[in-house]
Structures are given as C-alpha cells and as structure tokens.
C-alpha cells in the first residue's frame, strides 16, 4: 500500500470518528405538550441516519431544531464542535445571536415534506439564489454547478420551468438539488415522500439513494419508508413519545428488534 493511500485511509478514519452533531439531553415542549423528553444522539461525519416511529413521536422536531426552525426548551445541540443555540461571552453562556447561529446553520441543508420551492423563480434560479446571495459565490460557477446538479436529479431539460409546471416528484428533486448546491455537511430530509402520489415516490427515493451512496455528507432522514431505511441507513433510531427507545444498525432495529413497541409498530406497518 502506498504511503499516500495509507494517509488517505487515516484521514477517512479520523473523519468518520468525528461527531458532527451531538444532542445532549435535548427537550422540547409546546406549552404543556412535551414533544421530546431528553434526546441524546451522536451523528458522525458522513453517517446516514434514519429516524422512524409513529406520527407525533417528535421525529420531525428533532431535525427542525437542528435546522434552527425550532428552539429546544433545554439541552444542547453541538454542531461541528460548537453549541448551536448558546454562545460564550465573558465566560458565561448566553443565548446565541443570529450571527453565531447563521455561521453554524451554513453546515446544514434541509429538504421539506412540502418542497417549499420559490414559486416566483425558475428551478434553475431556485438552485442559484442561495449560493449567490448567501455564500457570495461566483455566478457563473454557481450556474454551472446548479445545472450539473439538476441534471443529476434528472431535470436537466427543465431548467427554465417554474415549480408550478412540475409534478410533485419533480419538485422534490429540485428541492434536493437546491439543498445540495449549497454543499452542506449535514442534510436533513423531513418525510420527503409523504406528500407525494405513490407512483412518484420511487423517483425521489432513487435520488436520495444516489446521494447516500456517492456523497460524503451526513444525512438524517425522517421517513416512513422502512425498506428504504434498511437499504441506505447506517443507523436507525426508533422514536416513541419523545424518547429514543431503540437505536442500532438498520438490520438490528428493523429486522431483529427485541423491543415490543418496535415490533408492534413494524408489524402494523408491514400489514398495510
């Protein structure tokens, strides 16, 4: 083995042992309703994590807090070694300001259940607007990259279409391209196939599978597609009533779980 490749492997190893996201005793309440009750979770660079569980169990809230769309009630979320919601000033910990949050938020991208494409822009503009205005990147380079990304998700022939002219599956693929063009270290997928007609689910999962296998970013998928989770996820979390009741490799949780609640949930799922 050459010296170079040994170095490469060492580099990959150190990368893989680095926790890019840590949740420590994170809770979230909406009024009297306790959505999450003490979440502890480690996500390593490049790791693909699927979160499953019954609806209302708080799956989406976990990733929405990471995207800074919700603020945790207590606990810490550490992104890339820095506390997402808190910062230090004069030795004491204070709520983070927008500058601190936006710096860390730049590491994270998200794909939404309802796509949330910008309707007043073509799909190419949808992909280009953030790299140009947020990251101040060169317009020409961004355009090229956006076109490549849209080609990758199979929409290279629809660059000048508006979102309203596309099907749900196409819109969701644009949303993924839009997030990927920002080159996040962590990608969040919030039930991305739940709002789609059944015949359109496949094309979207195909794109995610492609990303999961070929890109080295960490991914957190909130999903109801069990077979898909089994295929792409390194780790699966089962969440019920705001608590992670089981976590492990995909096959441990989805095929050989000893936990009764997990088994009951999966049985119900398989019956449908």
């Amino acid at each position: 083995m050459s010296e170079q490749s040994v170095k490469d492997i060492e580099k990959i190893n150190t990368l893989n042992t680095e926790q890019i996201v840590k949740y420590r005793n994170v809770t979230k309440s909406f009024g009297d309703f306790h959505v999450l009750k003490g979440i502890n979770l480690d996500i390593y660079s490049g790791e693909k994590v699927a979160i499953i569980g019954p609806s209302g169990s708080g799956k989406t809230t976990i990733i929405r807090m990471l995207m800074t769309l919700e603020e945790p009630t207590s606990g810490d979320i550490i992104v890339d070694g820095k506390n997402l919601w808190k910062m230090k000033r004069n030795g004491t910990s204070i709520p983070a300001n927008e500058k601190h949050i936006s710096e860390l938020r730049g590491n994270i991208g998200m794909v939404f259940q309802h796509f949330n494409l910008f309707p007043h822009m073509t799909i190419l503009e949808n992909c280009m607007v953030a790299p140009i205005h947020v990251k101040k990147e060169d317009k020409k380079e961004v355009q090229e990259r956006s076109i490549q990304m849209l080609e990758r998700v199979g929409l290279g022939n629809k660059l000048n279409f508006y979102p309203s002219q596309l099907s749900g599956g196409q819109k969701q693929r644009v949303a993924m391209a839009r997030a990927l063009v920002m080159r996040p270290k962590i990608m969040l997928f919030d039930e991305v196939t739940s709002a789609l007609d059944p015949e359109l689910v496949g094309e979207v999962l195909e794109v995610i599978r492609d990303i999961a296998h070929n890109d080295d970013m960490a991914m957190i998928l909130v999903t109801h597609e069990m077979d898909f989770a089994l295929d792409v996820a390194d780790k699966v979390l089962f969440l019920d009533q705001g608590v992670i009741i089981e976590q492990g490799t995909a096959s441990e949780v989805l095929e050989h779980s000893k936990n009764e609640r997990v088994q009951a949930f999966l049985r119900r799922f398989r019956k449908i």
Binding site: L69, S102, N116, F118, A130, R178, M182
Partner: peptide, 8 residues
C-alpha cells in the same frame, strides 16, 4: 422556513 434553511 426554506429561506432560513438556505441561510438567507
């Protein structure tokens, strides 16, 4: 939310 996620 999308604007926030894209860090505008």
């Amino acid at each position: 939310e999308a604007s926030k996620a894209l860090n505008f």
